[in-house]
Amino acid sequence: MRTAATILRKDLRVELRTLETVPSMWLLAITTFVIFHFGLGRDTLRGQLAAGVLTVTLLFAGMLAINRLFVAEREQGGFDAFLLAPVDRTAMFFAKTGALFLFLVATEVVALPAFALLLAPPSLGSSLPAVLLFLALADLGVAVIGTFVSAIAVHTRARDLIGPILGLPLLLPALIATARGLAPLLVPGAGGSPPAKWLAVLALYDLVNALLAVGLFDFLLEE
């Protein structure tokens, strides 16, 4: 865990210094809201439509981070340096999942208010905690699968292509659960309780994938 913290701190420091990933995610998210406004011809969205637009936007913004997650390790020898050290290799997985999770949260800090301002129906206050809970679980799922997919894609020639085409189908169950679960929360005057069924599905999906990824991640690091 100490190793994971070391790597995570290094990643956050690089991100703070270069501002490569998170600002791009902000821009992509807001631009996508504008696109949906024109594409759907709606000024405000509610229910399933609002949930779908929000989920899809965040997923696509997340794809940017997924594509970049391991690029520095690959191009600047981070993998070799890490493999030369006498440390547990799963630490890399935890560190990268943590970094991706934080990038997603940082994106939502800007994207969620932007969504509320631009597209959401008025008076959503009461369901906000439930929405945040859903997004946190969704972020976890995206972080786990994204890290896994990114570690595969970074060693391929066409990594910008392999990442999304591999990641999107794998993330579909999480997307379904999030979009369906958020839908009843994004109507005016919605109650505060999230649909338990979709929370459970999302949590279970996160758990299964985390176990698989932890079990298999070492094979992706080995030369």
Binding site: I152, H155, L166, L170, N209, L212, A213, L216, F219, L220
Partner: peptide, 9 residues
Amino acid sequence: RYAAVFAVV
């Protein structure tokens, strides 16, 4: 190796 990891997941 990567194909096998993909196949498992």
